[in-house]
């Protein structure tokens, strides 16, 4: 009798604790932000260091101990302050220009948004989503930069609920690149929605241009 009660209360306690902890962690599990924005810069740094004979590892964009020691050796040889940190000075000495990462970060952001918003869609549907973002940049009704459009509050569901932080796949990159190159299967559309899940009545008042996959694109 006693052991039975004990087991029952133990089970209740365990259940509550596990439940409580997991709720707590689900509520607070937003710290998963991976620092990837600098990966492309890291790659250029690694490949420059490899060309110069300082680095022997893989060009993977990960700033690990191998990269760090290569950077330190490079800084020592070139009379820079030896801290193992790739700052503007070291980047300059390596000949890796900061301005290039600016345009790639646009591509990266665009690919992230495409992946988050349209990863289940056919390829051209992904290009179309990227094109809508770029059309918004041009339009007076929306912010005038890619990041401004993507991070406009309430503009994209997938940005709002955090799916934007998923790592985009190769298809999303290709689609983003095609759109940046001027491909626009929607011819100037500013909106898209999924008629099955759209909650806003307003969106149905827009002039529909084309349906691609599950998305309806509209001006």
């Amino acid at each position: 009798m006693k052991s039975k009660l004990f087991i029952i209360s133990f089970l209740i306690l365990a259940f509550i604790l596990v439940g409580g902890f997991s709720t707590y962690f689900i509520l607070n599990n937003n710290s998963d932000v991976v620092q990837v924005a600098t990966a492309s810069t890291n790659k250029s740094v690694q490949s420059r260091l490899k060309d110069l004979g300082y680095y022997t590892g893989n060009i993977d964009g990960i700033y690990g101990p191998l990269t760090r020691s290569a950077v330190i050796n490079f800084q020592r040889d070139y009379g820079l302050s030896v801290d193992g940190i790739v700052g503007p000075e070291t980047l300059g000495a390596l000949g890796v220009s900061n301005s290039t990462s600016q345009s790639s970060s646009d591509l990266y952001l665009l690919a992230k948004c495409v992946y988050a918003e349209a990863r289940g869609e056919p390829y051209v549907g992904q290009v179309a989503v990227a094109a809508v973002i770029l059309n918004r940049v041009e339009s007076p009704e929306f912010p005038n930069t890619i990041s401004g459009v993507i991070y406009q509050p309430w503009a994209f569901t997938a940005v709002h609920d955090g799916q934007i932080n998923l790592e985009p796949n190769d298809t999303a990159y290709q689609a983003a690149k095609d759109a940046l190159n001027g491909w626009d299967p929607t011819y100037g559309c500013l909106y898209y929605y999924n008629p099955v899940t759209a909650t806003s009545q307003w969106i149905y008042s827009r002039q529909v241009v084309v349906t691609i996959g599950k998305h309806v694109f509209a001006i």
């Binding site: 009660l5 004990f6 029952i8 209740i12 409580g20 709720t23």
Partner: peptide, 28 residues
């Protein structure tokens, strides 16, 4: 007596659980 002791233990354990949950909830 046995039942009483068991109940006391269960109450203590449940109280600990409630307090722990309360603290976690407060933090979050």
């Amino acid at each position: 007596k046995k039942t009483n002791r068991a109940l006391t233990i269960a109450t203590i354990i449940l109280s600990i659980a409630v307090i722990t949950l309360g603290i976690l909830y407060g933090i979050s």
